[in-house]
Design a protein around this nucleic acid. Structure first.
Lengths: 231, 231
DNA sequence: CGCGTACAGTCTACACTGTAGATAGGCGTC
DNA sequence: GACGCCTATCTACAGTGTAGACTGTACGCG
């Protein structure tokens, strides 16, 4: 008999399991079929293993979700030494935006998990960007408390933008305008005149440009308000 | 026998059920014990009714959640005729912030549900703020597409701020600093020097002031960039 | 060689979830 | 009284996370 036995459906079993393997498959599954599809049983099947084996690599389902967010956030590369802090923050923002567009189903985790976990108990991978951005700003000459202010305004805006953009995001670009109009058509004209008439503008949303524009305003505003002492 | 029969545990049955009653109890439950506590069975018990009766007032559990978000957002009062649009946006922002602080467990719904629902299919209550803010801005002299830009930057920032603030929010103000420090202490000093040393500043976060500050920057920036033609 | 121990993976079982479908109770109208 | 309608209940089912006991295999040590 051939050594390939595929007891599950999709995946043959290959060697030993590992946390990396488990998390990678989990992310794959979430990307493909959404958060609800990520059940222990399903993930086990996808790996060709008993669901219970997963508990060796993640204490909980919750911990598994944390692992997935960590996996995504680890793809964010930050240069805390960049002397041009504004350019660096712009770069980070666009990276995070594109990560979010690549893994839209993970975004709810990104924004939601920290709400139920005190700062100090979060997975380290999710705190690293915070640390690095603080470092970047302090290195650039901000007093540490001001760096915190800047970080909050910046990251707040960034997360907000991402949420906003994903809300208007429709998967199939062909049906985009049609679906949108269809949706809008259902709204009572009396109550929603503005929204209905903005249909075309909604359909031609350029998220990247809008992010950039908002950042320009915010960053230069912050800069002039909290004077940077050349480091 | 007295007419009061309390088959569940907490709530006596009073008259007929209604959507309002169901949603109110649902919100109450979520506020008190979090989203996970809101199961059909539990809510039924809380109302002294069979869980199945709820399906008459909400098609789904998902629809129930939508109803709860609607209930919260309906408490947001917006004056679309206010000629001072900046003051009005400030006011809305603070109202939404305080709603979020009052119902922190609902916030994940607020930011998450729209991600899985195309714009036109959302509960009308959740679209009303959008419509009204657009109205406010157009009335104030913005060209409709510019109004959309302003709305996006504004609402994005606002949601981002709320998420940020709730992440740092700790329920018991007594334990606040202690817990925070405790949490921070667990971080490897080598990797997280900045974050650790900012502990005290994290503990004295004034969300309202920071929101205001960010709004000042953003709104005046937007105003000067997209010239308002006096209406 | 043989034995012991550690650990990856499995099996079974339990309490709990959302909800489809059939069933009962109470009301107004003919 | 008989009918139909609407609300609420009951029963049942497939699916969930996970505790606890169990099996197998690999490896070091005598």
């Amino acid at each position: 008999m051939a050594p390939a036995r595929t007891p599950g459906s999709t995946a043959a079993r290959k060697g030993r399991l590992s946390r990396e393997l488990v998390l990678a498959k989990a992310l794959e599954l979430v990307d493909a079929e959404g958060l609800d599809a990520l059940t222990m049983r399903r993930l086990g099947q996808e790996l060709g293993r008993d669901p219970m084996s997963l508990y060796r690599y993640a204490e909980n389902r919750a911990a598994l979700l944390d692992g997935v967010t960590e996996l995504v956030l680890n793809q964010l590369s930050i240069q805390p030494k960049d002397p041009d802090w504004k350019a660096q923050l712009r770069h980070i923002a666009h990276s995070l935006r594109s990560l979010a567009l690549q893994h839209p189903n993970v975004v709810p985790l990104l924004v939601t998990r920290p709400l139920s976990t005190p700062l100090g108990m979060r997975p380290l991978g999710t705190l690293r960007p915070l640390e690095q951005i603080l470092s970047l700003l302090i290195e650039a000459g901000f007093a540490p408390p001001d760096a915190l202010h800047v970080y909050r305004a910046y990251y707040g805006f960034l997360y907000g933008h991402i949420l906003n953009e994903l809300q208007e995001f429709v998967v199939d670009p062909e049906e985009n305008e049609a679906l949108l109009r269809l949706g809008l058509h259902r709204l009572p004209p009396r109550e929603f005149p503005r929204l209905r008439s903005l249909g075309p503008d909604l359909a031609t949303y350029d998220g990247s440009a809008e992010l950039d524009q908002g950042l320009s305003i915010l960053l230069s505003g912050l800069e002039s308000q909290l004077s940077v002492h050349a480091g």
